[in-house]
Design a protein around this nucleic acid. Structure first.
Lengths: 118, 118
DNA sequence: TGAGTATATTCTTATCTTCGAATATACTAA
DNA sequence: TTAGTATATTCGAAGATAAGAATATACTCA
């Protein structure tokens, strides 16, 4: 089972391993939207969006329902939003530690100036 | 900044979008291990493991430190383990809902047998 | 120094991913 | 039915990724 679980996880990660698809998931964060709305908000080609949506469907990240002419998309499980939130915190933590490291460096070499030669 | 954040997230997801790399991260869950130990536990080629480790380093998922002859790997941030745990819960939830759906189907068609023709 | 061990890199080949362009399908309204 | 709108699929090119084989680098010990 452990192997199936790893397969499953890597499928999810693959599904999210693209900035456009992350943008889609973030847009869907507060509820369902139609493909057309997503396309308008993303500002990308219809075909391209449709392909990314197909990936998200295939990886079980979103579900869709058809209403007349339109297709509405919805995130399949809140867990995925949690995942994105954790990574946001991680991102800012990383940023902070980078900033602190730079401050540290600046303190240790107080004489250096921007543009100084190596 | 929002764009940088999406880039960052998709980098992380890309790093984890492979079952072998997920296995590595899971092995590192409880603490650092040397490359050699990882290779032994994974049962894969040395060169292959080394490449996956290079990806994990490049995507900022692990950090390494060298001790003499060996290189020890460590997960860079606990947040990533949280992410894997969330997905594990998600996985089992999905499994449950699939099982329930199958039970439902079985209840609705009590006369059908395994192997019955379509 | 030289031999042996641990790990990384490079190269090649096969396979995936992404994008845009073109086309197809499904639905609505007249 | 036909025209129009919304969405999906297919195809081809460019680039990225994965695996094994061969080789290189870095370290230890004698």
């Amino acid at each position: 089972m452990t192997d199936a679980l790893r397969q499953f996880k890597s499928q999810i990660f693959q599904g999210l391993a693209n900035p456009t698809r992350i943008a889609i998931v973030e847009l869907l964060r507060t509820g369902e939207l139609s493909a057309g709305t997503l396309i308008a908000k993303l500002g990308i080609e219809q075909a391209n969006a449709s392909q990314h949506l197909a990936v998200l469907r295939a990886k079980q990240i979103v579900v869709s329902r058809k209403v007349g002419n339109q297709v509405y998309y919805l995130i399949r499980d809140q867990a995925l939003i949690e995942v994105l939130d954790i990574l946001r915190r991680y991102f800012y933590a990383q940023l902070n530690s980078t900033v602190n490291m730079l401050k540290e460096v600046a303190r240790e070499a107080p004489k250096s100036r921007a543009g100084a030669r190596r």
